[in-house]
């Protein structure tokens, strides 16, 4: 299957009064057509900034200072804003967010907003696009007669996310980015939305980047998982192996923190808290919290290397290419 997205050495900073936040520290990501990649990690590790970078939506005080983002073979960091808008964003890739109600325009009815999206990406009139709206709403499980004339504030969180999905998929994107799409929803609604998304992207053959802090959600939905910590990608593996054989000490800590029904085990958690990215720790950014830390970890940042086919880790414990620890 051919490569859809290839992110290399992406560096993003934010200029703030406190200093420069090194939000992304040269990350690497890739995704094939029709593949589903999960990005997981705790608050502030850079998941959303990664997604926004791929959409080229990083704005001041943020700045992409290095790296390349190849999308269908073209470096989108070199495209003009106009080309980005005309050919890529909302055409070849689209995005859904955690707070669907605030992502919708509050003063327009749902039907009109969907029609506008369809019109924009197919270069047709709003009138013609409007005729396609009922089908679009039914596709995401909404009764079109009841929902087409509603305003965003009249929707429940679950309905609003369905509308967002309708809009995001109406353009038949190659890549759908979903940033915590179910984190604000109750668990039964989360399960409904994930099931819907699963069916629709299967039919639409869309590649998906699913961003979530919930490893369970990611592992069920995705083929592959990328684990981030403090602005770095620290482990990449397929969804089963990340649980059965996690390599990075952080990934191990994360997994041993998740309460699992029936597991009856103690939860160990990870000592300390995430570092301030204005002055991140030297060497391995995880070293102040790592039980396995040794001298080299304090000075030299580990790089991502492939330990077994498709399983990558950035940790000095594995730097001679062997699995241990």
């Amino acid at each position: 299957m051919s490569r859809l997205l290839d992110v290399e050495n992406l560096r993003v900073i934010f200029h703030t009064y406190r200093g420069t936040i090194k939000a992304l520290n040269g990350i690497r990501l890739w995704l094939n057509e029709e593949e589903r990649l999960g990005i997981v990690g705790e608050t502030g590790c850079g998941k959303s900034v990664s997604a926004l970078s791929v959409m080229r939506l990083i704005e001041a005080p943020g700045e992409i200072i290095d790296g390349q983002i190849l999308f269908e073979g073209n470096d989108i960091l070199k495209l003009s804003e106009e080309d980005m808008d005309r050919h890529i964003r909302g055409k070849r890739m689209s995005m859904i967010f955690q707070e669907p109600i605030s992502a919708l325009n509050p003063v327009f009815k749902v039907g009109f907003q969907i029609a506008e999206t369809i019109a924009h990406c197919n270069d047709i009139s709003i009138g013609d696009a409007y005729k396609l709206v009922p089908e679009s709403l039914e596709m995401v499980g909404l009764d079109w007669k009841r929902s087409i004339d509603l305003y965003p504030h009249e929707l429940s969180g679950g309905m609003a996310q369905r509308v967002m999905i309708a809009m995001a998929l109406a353009i038949k994107p190659k890549l759908l980015i979903a940033d915590e799409p179910t984190s604000a929803l109750d668990v039964t609604i989360q399960a409904q939305i994930l099931q819907l998304l699963d069916e629709l992207v299967k039919i639409g053959k869309n590649a998906v980047i699913l961003i979530t802090h919930d490893l369970g959600v990611a592992s069920e939905f995705c083929d592959r998982i990328t684990v981030m910590y403090a602005g770095n990608v620290i482990e990449i593996s397929n969804s089963e192996e990340i649980f059965d054989e996690p390599l990075h000490p952080y990934t191990k800590g994360l997994i041993s923190s998740i309460p699992i029904i029936g597991a009856s085990r103690e939860l160990t958690g990870i000592p300390g808290s995430v570092p301030d990215l204005v002055s991140p720790p030297s060497g391995c950014r995880f070293h102040p919290r790592c039980d396995f830390c040794f001298d080299r970890c304090r000075t030299e940042p580990p790089t991502l290397s492939e330990i077994s086919p498709g399983h990558f880790v950035a940790c000095h414990l594995y730097s001679d290419g062997v699995k241990e620890g």
Partner: peptide, 23 residues
């Protein structure tokens, strides 16, 4: 259905019986 809706950690995809509609 609350138990059913919980994502299964590391156990792959699951067909589940999810309650219809919303509260």
């Amino acid at each position: 259905s609350l138990l059913e809706a919980i994502p299964s950690v590391g156990r792959g995809k699951r067909i589940r019986k999810i309650p219809r509609g919303e509260i």
